[in-house]
């Protein structure tokens, strides 16, 4: 698996660095435009994870790289677990980089005259708390999104897989709504109380746990699907 992670990181290194450069600008514009530090930081992590995932999947299909990689001492199972690990690593690194970026922006803003700085950039407790919270919340939401996308990409490739993705997402959402109506369950009523009791940090931790569990389950499914793929 180490070889697969190395292969992914070597392959995507340049693209990730370029993307992070772009994300810095996008993030600053988002904070400025929405007047919200959290939006800019969350967008940075989201863009890095999604673009990282799609970039890696795109390179797989160029020049027969995916087929050639299977001639290296890397099994199909290692390809899948390695790919999931690479994306998780990109996500964690992006979250850390986004936090550093957020605090750097706050520090620069703090050095400027207060009346020239928009609210989103202002050095205050709310923004200081929003930076790590938004980074990690975005990371776990994106891991959940990757968990839905990756089995399709591993089975059909990025071109066909991303074509099927919206269909699967709509189907999952529709199935959830229909099922809750059919069983007569009011999700807000059922979950509202326990979630309120957990508090925001508890909900965050539970969400993170669920996202990681979904991500691992998705990897196990992708291994089965990728074994059947002819390259």
């Amino acid at each position: 698996m180490k070889a697969m992670i190395a292969s992914d990181l070597i392959t995507a290194r340049k693209a990730l660095l370029q993307m992070f450069g772009i994300c810095i600008f996008v993030s600053i514009f988002m904070i400025w435009g929405t007047d919200s530090m959290a939006a800019g930081i969350a967008a940075t992590v989201a863009m890095m994870v999604m673009l990282g995932m799609l970039n890696l999947a795109g390179y797989d299909e160029m020049n027969g790289w995916q087929a050639f990689r299977l001639t290296l001492p890397i099994s199909r199972s290692q390809v899948v677990w390695g790919r999931y690990a690479s994306i998780a690593l990109v996500g964690i690194a992006s979250a850390i980089a986004a936090i550093a970026l957020g605090f750097a922006i706050l520090l620069v803003a703090a050095a400027l005259p207060a009346d020239t700085v928009p609210q989103g950039f202002a050095w205050n407790a709310e923004n200081a708390e929003a930076v790590p919270a938004a980074a990690f919340l975005s990371l776990f939401v994106l891991l959940a999104a990757a968990a839905l996308s990756l089995p399709l990409i591993m089975r059909f490739g990025v071109t066909k897989g991303t074509r099927w993705l919206p269909v699967v997402i709509v189907m999952v959402m529709a199935a959830g709504i229909v099922l809750s109506r059919y069983l007569g369950i009011d999700i807000e009523e059922v979950l509202g109380g326990p979630l309120a009791a957990l508090g925001p940090w508890g909900v965050g931790a539970l969400g993170a746990l669920l996202a990681v569990a979904l991500y691992v389950a998705s990897a196990a499914l992708s291994v089965r699907l990728y074994r059947k793929r002819e390259l």
């Binding site: 070889a3 190395a6 292969s7 392959t11 290194r13 390179y59 020049n63 027969g64 790289w65 050639f68």
Partner: peptide
Amino acid sequence: LDTCSFPVTMTVGDAGALGRVA
């Protein structure tokens, strides 16, 4: 294989680095 299959983002040195790990 019948084409040079390394990703276009890799350098010759990167191919060596990958070989070292693999």
